[in-house]
């Protein structure tokens, strides 16, 4: 896969009176063609600043951005023809119908035969019947679909999605995620920001954690999980937790604690210890109902990564 976006040593400082805020600090990352790249981080981490630079509405202080082999600073207009952006926080133009809004955007992007293009997208998104409604009157789910239509009008090679499922009900969010998967299936490169960790894990091929303007870590969801989890947790369901606990305490390098009645959590740093644990458990007087390894949730990974980057790790 070729590189669709190359961001090299980007920095941005916002000045407000005497105060300076480092919005982005030497950010470097690469997005491959055809992948969904997730950009995750807390509010104010620098995600929107980075997207604003990619779409050409904000200039970096230093560093360079190359999109589809073109330099953002020099070939802004050419790049803007090949990308599009959808923000979950944006609304719609006032006093214009859904169809009029989309035709307006077609004109901005010089889309040939705009009416046919708009009709096709509206039908695909199930919005055709709502085409004559005022765009500002759409429900949040319909508005998000309308915005995705807007984002696809110019057949962009790269689509930037800034929290596309924010404020959506479960069904609408599932639908939007399905659409994003379909777009990836059609070979589109997607940059996604979201606070929904489940969504990020489900959709993204690669993820960058960003905090206080710095990239904390980059990798596939699996790589990120393995990076942060130096220990693994085994959950034991049993009839007598005190017996299990006292038996496990005799094993060196194994930390066990009672999570709740009949449930014991064991932290294991070395897999070779598993055999010893099983032997100890088999000698317990009480019943052992199950032994399972607990997979950390992506949310836990996110929290750990962000906390570590702030020098406040709970590990």
């Amino acid at each position: 896969m070729q590189d669709a976006v190359i961001i090299s040593n980007i920095s941005k400082i916002y000045k407000s009176g005497k105060e300076s805020i480092h919005a982005l600090d030497n950010v470097t990352l690469t997005i491959k063609e055809g992948e969904i790249f997730g950009l995750l981080g807390p509010n104010g981490a620098g995600k929107t600043t980075l997207i604003s630079m990619l779409i050409g509405i904000l200039k970096q202080d230093s560093g360079s951005i190359s999109i589809l082999g073109m330099d953002v600073a020099r070939e802004t207009s050419k790049i803007q023809n090949n990308i599009n952006v959808v923000s979950g926080f944006s609304r719609s133009l006032i006093s214009l119908s859904v169809e009029e809004c989309l035709i307006y955007y077609c004109m901005l992007y010089n889309v040939k035969n705009p009416k046919a293009k708009v009709d096709r997208l509206l039908k695909k998104m199930g919005l055709y019947e709502a085409r004559n409604l005022l765009a500002e009157d759409l429900s949040s789910g319909m508005r998000q679909k309308y915005l995705i239509c807007k984002g696809l009008l110019n057949d962009p090679k790269i689509l930037l999605l800034d929290e596309p499922t924010v404020g959506l009900d479960v069904e609408s969010a599932i639908l939007v995620r399905k659409m994003i998967k379909e777009l990836k299936g059609n070979g589109m490169t997607i940059l996604l920001t979201t606070h929904n960790m489940f969504e990020a894990e489900e959709l993204c091929d690669n993820i960058a954690f960003i905090n206080r303007g710095k990239i904390v870590s980059i990798g596939t969801p699996k790589e990120l999980k393995s990076k942060i989890m130096s220990t693994r947790t085994v959950e034991i369901h049993c009839s007598d937790e005190s017996c299990v606990l006292s038996s496990l305490k005799s094993l060196p390098g194994v930390k066990a604690k009672v999570k709740s009645p009949q449930i014991v959590h064991v932290n294991v740093t070395d897999y070779k210890k598993m055999k010893d644990i099983m032997l100890v458990l088999s000698s317990c007087k009480g019943e052992i109902y199950s032994v399972n390894e607990l997979e950390p949730t992506f949310e836990e990974i996110y929290i750990k990564m962000i906390n570590q980057s702030q020098g406040d790790s709970h590990e």
């Binding site: 509405i57 923000s87 944006s90 010089n110």
Partner: peptide, 18 residues
């Protein structure tokens, strides 16, 4: 100003229009 009210101004400036 109206695109700003409608929270669509970024879409205008992110398009190829000068």
């Amino acid at each position: 100003a109206e695109e700003n009210w409608a929270k669509t101004l970024a879409y205008l400036f992110a398009s190829p229009i000068s």
